[in-house]
Amino acid sequence: MGVRALLEVEVGQGSLAPTSVRRCLAWVALGGVAYGACMGSFGLRPLQCLISAIKTPLLISAGGLFCIPSFYVINNLLGLREDFGQALRGIASSQAAVAVCLASLGPITLVLYSGTDQYAFAKALNGVMFLFASLGGQIVLARNYRTLIQRNPRHRVALFAWLTLFWFVTIQLAWMLRPFIGQPNDPTTFLRADSWGNAYVEVWRTIVNSLR
């Protein structure tokens, strides 16, 4: 399956484009490693490059893995068991699309890194890149789900459930896997010493503290 087939999601005779989860995972690994290496190159530290290259595919795929059991049961309850394979392939290809989009943005990140040494700028830049890549993933997900929803409107509920679960877990995962870029002045570590916190609790505390 090429990039074009992955992103365009050509639909023929009412069935989805043939994709396989394994191939999607391969895309996630490839694209994630490529972008992670670019992202970690801020401050030109090879070790950070390597760490980010490992973390990015994890970030893209691991959150989904935690949610698959619940998603499976929810699909069953909605009476969508027959379509579960296709739904899963749709989701896998949306994650592959995120990775491919990220990888395609990698060179831009490199160019923009070269003009700055501001850590805050690097963080914001990567935020924007991830935002764009997620949008790409969303588009592919919507395309994959269109046929499913046409077949049975209850797929809309399943999709909503997936997005809620996935983002709930992935936000926490992203928090745990920090730092992705790494403050150049600090020693390079795989995880932050204080990373075993809860993103939601932390965000709430930050809001409360700023209001005091």
């Binding site: 059991p69 309850l77 877990v169 075993w196 809860n198």
Partner: peptide, 23 residues
Amino acid sequence: LALLASFGPILAFFTLSTDSYPF
């Protein structure tokens, strides 16, 4: 209970990363 059990991995993930008892 099946749905509860299927939420197990998500709960385990948050347990691993959170020490906030109220959360």
